[in-house]
């Protein structure tokens, strides 16, 4: 049965860039440090075992090359230009702007292994496979200055899924194409995966501990989802949780490449307002309906690669043997000593 399990939209509402060269947009920043990416909006959709990401970059002026890096739960099979109004329509659904007479159509806004490379408008998209060091080295070799927290954050993701998408935004090309400030370029990424998750920690990349991460996450599920961590703690707040309206689903379905949107879904909106130092997790979504989102997908499992079960089972057995062996041997020794000290004929 084809069904939609999850649709998530992450709207980074205030990713403002200053001239400081260490500011990053979801991961990478160009060497000249000029302000040009005002806001990054991402849609992640899960349908019939396939996750769809739609990311839009808004051009805010400046020159040179800038980019973003997005951790992915699996290897994408397709990267293409995304729909024109999907993200805006989701935002409009939960944060309607009272503008009488505005028609919907008007809302359309303007050393790792390289797996896939695509050029979309002024964006160069590269899908990479590799560990944190490899992806970091690739980024460095391609002229990007990673912030100081990048080594740890890249490892945080690579230990779960060594797939990253690097999007390089060529501001000069955007200007040459006639793109105006505020114009967006949506990108649709199709990723087959068994377990969807929404990368949140990457939003804090390049920020100091006290800086805020301000974002909106939209989810569409077949049923009311179970999330990890608690969507009403740790800087998260669940603001909308209700059946998606038929008009929303119809509008989304009518956008380019969004024909898979089902007839019914559950809409959730999670507001993120957290200090960068607190946002050290992702959002795991149980797509099976069992109500058991993965600790590992949320980034809450112990840091580091998963160990083979045999390794810790061996330790458990060893500890059990020691724990049981000492009392048993001790008891046997004491019993023997007691027997030796008994006078002849004192036994029962």
């Amino acid at each position: 049965m084809r069904r939609l399990s999850t649709v998530a939209a992450t709207a980074v509402v205030a990713l403002l860039f200053t001239a400081g060269p260490a500011f990053a947009c979801g991961g990478l920043i160009g060497p000249n440090g000029a302000v040009n990416l005002l806001r990054t909006t991402t849609l992640a959709a899960y349908h019939d075992g396939v996750e769809h990401y739609v990311t839009a970059f808004q051009f805010a002026g400046g020159g040179g090359q800038f980019g973003s890096i997005v951790p992915l739960p699996g290897i994408p099979t397709k990267v293409e230009r995304g729909g024109d109004w999907t993200l805006q329509r989701l935002i409009r659904e939960t944060d309607p702007v009272p503008q009488a007479g505005v028609r919907l159509e008007a809302a359309a806004a303007s050393s790792a292994q390289v797996i896939l490379q695509v050029r979309i408008d002024a964006l160069d998209i590269t899908v990479l496979k590799g560990g944190g060091k490899e992806v970091g080295t690739w980024a460095k070799d391609h002229g990007f200055r990673l912030p100081p927290d990048a080594p740890e954050v890249l490892d945080f993701y690579a230990n779960r899924s060594p797939i990253f998408l690097a999007a390089v935004f060529d501001a000069d090309a955007a200007r040459a194409r006639g793109q105006s400030i505020g114009d967006g370029t949506p990108v649709h990424i199709t990723i087959p995966t068994a377990n969807p998750w929404v990368p949140l920690r990457i939003l804090a990349l390049g920020k100091t501990g006290s800086e805020r991460v301000d974002a909106d996450v939209y989810l569409l599920n077949d049923r009311q989802p179970t999330l990890l961590p608690d969507p009403n703690a740790n800087g998260l707040s669940l603001q909308v949780s209700e059946p998606a309206s038929a008009s929303l689903l119809k509008d989304l379905r009518s956008d380019k490449g969004m024909g898979w949107i089902p007839q019914n879904a559950w809409l959730s909106k999670i507001r993120i307002d957290a200090a960068a130092s607190d946002l050290r997790f992702d959002l795991a979504i149980d797509a099976s309906g069992r109500g058991q989102p993965s600790l590992r997908d949320a980034g809450l499992a112990p840091f580091g690669p998963m160990q083979p079960p045999a390794s810790w089972i061996g330790w458990v057995l060893l500890l059990a043997a020691v724990g049981l062996g000492i009392p048993v041997l001790g008891g046997a020794y004491l019993a023997r000593m007691a027997t030796r000290r008994m006078p002849p004929g004192a036994g029962a």
């Binding site: 400081g20 260490a22 200055r145 912030p147 100081p148 927290d149 390049g206 100091t208």
Partner: peptide, 12 residues
């Protein structure tokens, strides 16, 4: 200290 941008703030 590492004086690359933000490295000192980050704890280097």
């Amino acid at each position: 200290i590492c004086h690359l941008p933000r490295h000192e703030e980050y704890g280097m």
